[in-house]
Design a protein around this nucleic acid. Sequence first.
DNA 1: CGGACGATTGAGGACATTCAATTCGAGTGG
DNA 2: CCACTCGAATTGAATGTCCTCAATCGTCCG
Lengths: 256, 256
Amino acid sequence: MTAAALRSYHSAPLRTPGPPVRPVSASITSLAPPKRLRQKVRRGETLYAAGGAFRLLYVVRVGVMKSFTVSGDGLVQVTGFHFAGDVLGFDGIDSGTHQSSVVALDDCEVFVVPFAQCERWSAESPQAQRLMMRTLARELLRSQELMLLLGTMHAEQRVATFLLDISERYARLGYSRSEFILRMTRQDIGSYLGLKLETVSRIFSRFQAEGLLQVQGKSLAVLDFNALWRISGLSPDRRWPACDSILDRDGELRAA
Amino acid sequence: MTAAALRSYHSAPLRTPGPPVRPVSASITSLAPPKRLRQKVRRGETLYAAGGAFRLLYVVRVGVMKSFTVSGDGLVQVTGFHFAGDVLGFDGIDSGTHQSSVVALDDCEVFVVPFAQCERWSAESPQAQRLMMRTLARELLRSQELMLLLGTMHAEQRVATFLLDISERYARLGYSRSEFILRMTRQDIGSYLGLKLETVSRIFSRFQAEGLLQVQGKSLAVLDFNALWRISGLSPDRRWPACDSILDRDGELRAA
DNA sequence: CGGACGATTGAGGACATTCAATTCGAGTGG
DNA sequence: CCACTCGAATTGAATGTCCTCAATCGTCCG
């Protein structure tokens, strides 16, 4: 997979609807070039693969992607699902080589941001610097939430938590909170939650039998949020790490 | 626990063997003030608690600490063990409030670094900026390794991986790779690995019966590294995220 | 010395996995 | 347009791993 996919990815021309790079001034308002580099990634294609050189960060613009790591003996662990606004690529900062891989579950489009440019922004603007740090720190929180899930929760809790998370993220993007299409397979979900695909399927069915969900393949409707909250064991006022993106929908650097 | 421990912590005078703050020049060599603020944390005391305001980062100088998160329904998950050189406090960057707690498993001493100062360094020096980013990114990698462990490994694999990790970290600090004292309880280990304390104990006993270990309460000797590597399923050339600290033993900013 | 906490070990049970058989659905080619 | 095919999803039965409950032992501090 990886070799061919990587080839197709690297040979894909980067779309440059605007000037590729523009001199950066000290003013916060001009930090973000008006048009950002964009790239399309078709369903099943690889955005980047573990082992590849790290030079770029990506911000998902449309579509859903999954990231995953592979252990020494070949076991795959899905480490995240990524929606519009999510930033990808941080896993390469430390070593200069990506430690995980990202593939599109959908036809996707991403902004491409050279990391060197991020560093320049950060050096010029305290706000940009803080934005970078916070984005990275938020990723850390997200993975610690997942560690808690993997370390302490039972299968039903995990699935309930997963559904609430997905639901919340769709809601933030302006889609329905209660009805959506799962872009990932049962196996992806299972890997993400530390469960086998059969277990995920069984629990979906059980939730449906109890009237909490309506499941039909990949299309899903949540019928009873309170029950899911109760099963998940999380307090309903709990907020996931706020996922305000570093860039807005037009690719402008957010001035938070 | 937290209330009393926090009080004792906040009332503990910060030792200031040198000038508390010194103007920062643009030169990399002068970025680090010669003496850093230090703080002692006695065994069982809390360095910081979830919910507390975030203003400081810490670098462990001596001793061992554990960090943990608490879920909505009170379940505790140990998220890491921290040795000399490890940086603590990043979990507060995003929200300004710590999301996890850290307690000393040992009589400890830490460097105290105001985050605002780190930001100033980062703004003045590209190297310092990069160091900060890399340190944060490394934390992210570490937690993704743990996710893989929690999501895909069996109990024996987890324990073997844990032992190899601890062993490696002691070795890096100049201690014996094969003989050491575990500072944490079986419950801490179990929580970290997503297992019950009895399971950890049983696997220690099993490993001992098979001649891989010698265990006597908290003191532990590894007799067969190859077997542990085999059980863990990791390739022996695998390197954990290099844990070169942001500060050296004297509290000087490392010039990497 | 006594108490409390940590660690060990056993027996039984619960929950998730494994293996296996069907069904369902999407995409392909005739 | 339909049949075909392959991957995905569902469901069942049996197994296994880890957990729960419980008793005992050891060890570190007060």
